[in-house]
Amino acid sequence: MDPRRDTVPAAVTFLRDAGLVFRKDLLVEARGKEVLAPMLFFSVIVVFVFSFGFAGDGAAGADLVSGMLWVGLLLASTIGIGRTFEREREGETFRALLLTPASRAAVFVGKLMSILVFIALAEAVVVPLLVVLFGAPLFEHPFRLLALLALGTVGLCAIGALLGATLMRTRGRDVMLAIALYPLVVPVVLAGSRGTAALLDHDLAGADLWLRFLLAFDAVFVVLGLWIFEPLVSEA
């Protein structure tokens, strides 16, 4: 244990611990690519499956494109979140992570950040793909789109990290994650896809309304997560 631990302010320790968990996840991922490889490929497949299913002749309206974007992201992130925690379970490393002097809330923030990076990479694949396949003018309001994606992903990942961590010793993990995650993130998908559809229709006021909603949603679930992660993952 770091001897300086007692002398530095708690906030600094917290951020450093969260940063270490985050760095550890990225490092493991950089070596094995266990999460990213299947998830990125899956997000490409999903977009193609949607194209064949919904837009046979290649034309797609604002509602359809924004729906494909957000439902695709939800499906891909289920894979990303599931794989992230499955890897910890297979190596039995999650218990070791909980045994370190880092606070549980710091572990939660670290996990949240690493899942966030994985899903951001999936977004970097899906958004250009939708632009290319359907000619959707997604890049006309780049900052608002970025804000919608960022805030939506934070909400998605906060709930995903909380649920994923409780799945470790659960039977039927894969199904349970989807069953528990989807009903809870309905507001995120609704806000994200309606907001994106508003952007595609150049309705900036509508998009801003959804941005504010996502901000409130994220605030509730990140705070709830910091507080409830510890009892959720305890071994009792």
């Binding site: 409780t166 470790m168 659960t170 039927g172 349970m176």
Partner: peptide
């Protein structure tokens, strides 16, 4: 269907 360990997951779902 989640076994005994899923009680925490379920409790989390109810709170969220």
């Amino acid at each position: 269907y989640g076994g005994p360990a899923a009680r925490r997951l379920a409790a989390g779902l109810a709170v969220f």
